[in-house]
Nucleic acid binder design. Structure first.
Lengths: 296, 296
DNA sequence: CAAGTGTGCTTTACCGATAATAGACAGAAA
DNA sequence: TTTCTGTCTATTATCGGTAAAGCACACTTG
């Protein structure tokens, strides 16, 4: 059966929304709330009923009036807002990156299902999707094999990344000629300069900025395979650096400067220099990834 | 529940094996049969029992003697040797390539399950794996959307293919320096020349040869992402050209010559020429794919 | 008449169960 | 001592069912 994590997550988001309203204010229509919360009207209506029952909203006809702000204990705990699939992803990545799973070892779906407290179907489905990350392989009618977060993996991943991103940056460079492209570049550059000012304290925010910078470049390629591949990169970096915090501040500061070098070259239309700066940055990224890998 | 298609397929393969033996001959051990048939010993033992019961083999202790050759009607029909997953793949590709599924239309898993006579789980799992082919997209908690086998798709696919294959051919060229590489090249070249001789009648055999040629090149890259991507290419071409037979003989003959041009350049170690020939061949492949797409 | 709501019907996400298949281990044969 | 077989256990592939969530359509309301 399906759990109601979608409802619980949206319920929490809706409580946040209510807190941003004054008591007595009115919420928008059901369709507008549905769009805001990114769920169906059915879910919105379920939430509205429960909020009305809790005395947080007065709901009658089109009127959805805020009666009071919610208490903290009226939020659902975060653990309940996670869908089965999300839980599996999180736990599985932890398993890999904490090194509990040794390269070459078999993955037992039944065992994982027990360990994660989900059904084997959930595990099975996750693994078949995770397959594209190149870290596991399947033998028919038998189990999955974890191939290891190895040096070889990091090299192969980096090779493709460089191939794709150097191609993408060419297209991105052309885009800078357009009004939209120039605006995007300016926006990214400003964000970088801002972060650089507060780098001493906010260096951990770089992760999100890094993602949007590279995502912008890769998206310019207009190629679904390149964009999809960046999902792989993104997931690997996201989880990997949650478990490897060494030198985080220095690494991030260096990366910000490298990003800025790329953007400055793009700004003045020096494509040769942009290529060079991008290649240099990707080379650093490769080294960073390799350095954090245990096996030799 | 699981069907016994593995058993049936292996049973058929085993009948073939028996036909290649004289009456009175002995089959190998269970482990050796298991390895040959690529299944577990459990399945081998099931097959042996049934063949003994049918009077085809005499099985006693280590002796597995052929009593008679099987009749044609002792083979399981091919439809029963297909696993649920394979059936779904085949039917789904037909659906796409026959054009029954319009670009932008939603894919109803329940409806497909009924249509293909499998469970929704089978469909669900197939679609989530098929996702990597870039032809469908999913909106959370809602249905998959078919994005269409469009001109854009063909272009994006071809772009990546060229990027990867031109990179791979560099590595392949180095490999030709080794004994193993030279042998592989020679083997492929001979197969091409052979097929060229009988091209008038056997042109449809090119498909398999094409696959092994490109697979050999891509495998040389030693990069799991490149190799995996060739699965996408392979599937697309495999099914696509099953439904588009126009000009097949001419296309294939031209392609054989293009392959030979690449191999001849590699043989004499002219990497520049090999690159050029490969680029030219990939360009033809791109044009062929584009020409066969309906929409403008 | 455009947008919102009420309602009922679809469809998805996920679970638990079961037959097929794989795998492990002890003892037998070569 | 190596390889094979007999037997038992573990694991996978797949199904069918159920609550949650999405969706469509008629009916209101401004």
């Amino acid at each position: 059966m399906k759990d109601n994590s979608v409802y619980k997550r949206s319920h929490n988001a809706c409580l946040d929304l209510i807190r941003s309203h004054a008591t007595g204010a009115l919420l928008g229509s059901e369709p507008s709330l549905a769009q805001f919360l990114e769920v169906s009207r059915t879910t919105v209506r379920t939430i509205l009923s429960s909020l009305a029952a809790a005395g947080i909203l007065h709901v009658e006809g089109r009127e959805k009036r805020v009666l009071r702000h919610p208490y903290d204990d009226e939020y659902f705990p975060v653990t309940e807002t996670e869908s089965s699939a999300e839980l599996v992803e999180r736990k599985f990545m932890e398993l890999i990156l904490k090194g509990d799973l040794k390269p070459g070892s078999m993955i037992n779906t039944l065992e994982l299902a027990r360990q994660f407290a989900v059904s084997t179907s959930a595990i099975r489905e996750y693994l078949s999707g995770f397959n594209r990350f190149g870290l596991i392989a399947k033998r028919p009618n038998s189990s999955w094999v974890f191939q290891g977060f190895t040096r070889a993996f990091a090299l192969e991943l980096s090779d493709i990344r460089e191939l794709f991103e150097l191609k993408s940056i060419e297209v991105f460079a052309e885009r800078v000629g357009t009004e939209q492209g120039r605006r995007k570049l300016k926006e990214l550059k400003t964000a970088h300069i801002d972060l650089l000012d507060r780098v001493e304290t906010d260096y951990h925010n770089f992760s999100a900025l890094d993602e949007s910078f590279h995502r912008a470049i890769n998206d310019a390629s207009q190629n679904r395979f390149i964009r999809e591949f960046y999902d792989v990169i993104s997931l690997i970096f996201h989880y990997h650096f949650q478990w490897n915090k060494i030198d985080e501040r220095e690494r991030n500061e260096v990366a910000i400067h490298e990003h800025l070098a790329i953007m400055e070259a793009l700004e003045v239309g020096d494509i040769r220099q942009a290529r060079k700066a991008a290649a240099h940055h990707l080379e650093s990224a490769r080294k960073t990834l390799l350095r954090s890998i245990r096996d030799a």
